[in-house]
C-alpha cells in the first residue's frame, strides 16, 4: 500500500533518499485525512532543520497541519509547483506532490523512522 523505497514518520511525512538528497512529502493517508488541500507553505531554501522541526504547513478547507522535518538537514530545494497547484499533494503525493529536499542529512537518523510495513500497521491502528 505504501511505497517501499521510502521511510515514514508517525506524523505522516515520508522521506526518500537519492544520491545523498532527501526528498520529503506527506503520505496519501495524511492527504486524504486533510481533504482537498488548498495551500502549502514551504520553508526557505537554505534553512537549517533539526529532526522534528516544523518545516512546512499544509491547509485544507477544514484543517491545517504542520509538516515536520523527518530528518535534520539543510533545505536545498522546494517544490514551487505547489504554490499554484496544491492539489498535486492529493493527486500524486509521492511524486509531483513532494514538499522539499534536504541535504547534509545524517543517514543514521533514518533508522529512527518507520518502514512501509510498520507505517501501514501504524495507520491501521489510527483508523480504529
Amino acid at each position: 500500500m505504501f511505497p517501499k523505497d521510502m521511510k515514514f514518520t508517525k506524523d505522516h511525512e515520508w522521506v526518500r533518499e537519492e544520491d545523498g538528497v532527501y526528498t520529503v512529502g506527506i503520505t496519501a493517508f495524511a492527504a486524504e485525512q486533510l481533504g482537498d488541500i488548498t495551500y502549502v507553505e514551504l520553508p526557505e531554501v537554505g534553512a537549517e532543520m533539526e529532526q522534528g522541526d516544523s518545516a512546512a504547513s499544509v491547509e485544507s478547507v477544514k484543517a491545517a497541519s504542520d509538516v515536520y522535518a523527518p530528518v535534520g538537514g539543510r533545505v536545498c530545494d522546494i517544490n514551487h509547483d505547489l504554490e499554484s497547484a496544491p492539489e498535486l499533494v492529493n493527486q500524486d503525493p509521492y511524486e509531483q506532490g513532494w514538499f522539499f529536499r534536504l541535504e547534509g542529512v545524517r543517514p543514521a537518523q533514518l533508522k529512527t523512522l518507520l518502514d512501509a510495513d510498520a507505517y501501514e500497521k501504524y495507520v491501521g491502528e489510527q483508523e480504529h
Binding site: 488548498t38 491547509e59 485544507s60 478547507v61 477544514k62 484543517a63 491545517a64
Partner: peptide, 13 residues
C-alpha cells in the same frame, strides 16, 4: 475562507 488559520480550527496555533 482561510478558516483553517482561525481559532475554531487551529486552536493554540
Amino acid at each position: 475562507t482561510l478558516q483553517a488559520r482561525e481559532q475554531h480550527i487551529r486552536r493554540e496555533k
